[in-house]
Write a protein that binds this DNA or RNA. Sequence first.
DNA 1: TTGAGTGCAAATCCTTTGCAGGCGG
DNA 2: CCGCCTGCAAAGGATTTGCACTCAA
Lengths: 154, 154
Amino acid sequence: MTIDDKTEEMLKNLREQGYRVTPQRETVIRIFHEAGDKHLSAEDVFDILKEGSEQISLATTYRTLKMLVKMNILRELDFAETHKHYELVDTDAPPHHHIICLNCNKTIEFEDDLVNELGKRIAEKHGVEIVDMQFQIFANCPHGDDDEKRTHRQ
Amino acid sequence: MTIDDKTEEMLKNLREQGYRVTPQRETVIRIFHEAGDKHLSAEDVFDILKEGSEQISLATTYRTLKMLVKMNILRELDFAETHKHYELVDTDAPPHHHIICLNCNKTIEFEDDLVNELGKRIAEKHGVEIVDMQFQIFANCPHGDDDEKRTHRQ
DNA sequence: TTGAGTGCAAATCCTTTGCAGGCGG
DNA sequence: CCGCCTGCAAAGGATTTGCACTCAA
């Protein structure tokens, strides 16, 4: 399935839910598809927009991201930073998790059936209905520059 | 060991690291001890302070929290919210994890050796040196008020 | 046509910082 | 006494919101 197809499918989804399909929304969704599995912040999206021909205000960028999260098209990620990141929800794929390098700020994504299974089991044990899970491993990767070390996690 | 003993020990720790021991710092540490295993935000700490006899400015509250994280006395927690939470580091205890109810915003703490073991193994497999890990399960607990439902996670 | 969506600027929330004075060691 | 800490107020970054206008349906 091409990026266009995937984008079109999500737009159809929006329309069916009573949302209007605007060029702004289409562009934001396309940006996430083109970004592959990268995590983008609102500011990232806005910067990409500034480069391209489609100009969208920062306010609309934020409003669109929030709406897409509510629509379950994007997932909100909370690493220990000042701002949030977003990534496309892939309903076919199992949830994936992240290793966050405290030196270079890079993230490594990983999938792990055991983690997912364990999460489900823990939720059951506590009698709650699971919606999402995120396993975050904070670590230092081998080649890190200490210069850029983050201060908010020792 | 009493709360006073634990507080005193941490203050000694500060002194040894070249930090000054001020009534403000003592008070903040004591508040966390008295709060048991609750997670407090900067604003929470400040509110508790306002109630009590010790008045501390919000700026100092933030500065103290940040310093205590660097000292590894507090751990910073990032649930999917606009502000951070802090909890006492217990170096004897294994890391614990959280179930966050999307309805009522309450958190359930849990420990799980399997999760910790799995985290360690995953870090090893990826060749990174683990510093901390947090398994967050976002869920709905049975009795939730839908009124207070959080918007930033569908 | 019409109200959901947009852009702009102002507002808000959380957190940090500059500066002058205070106090721990 | 020295310089780290504090309080205050102002600044800062990220995100939200009020309002008038625009455009998708």
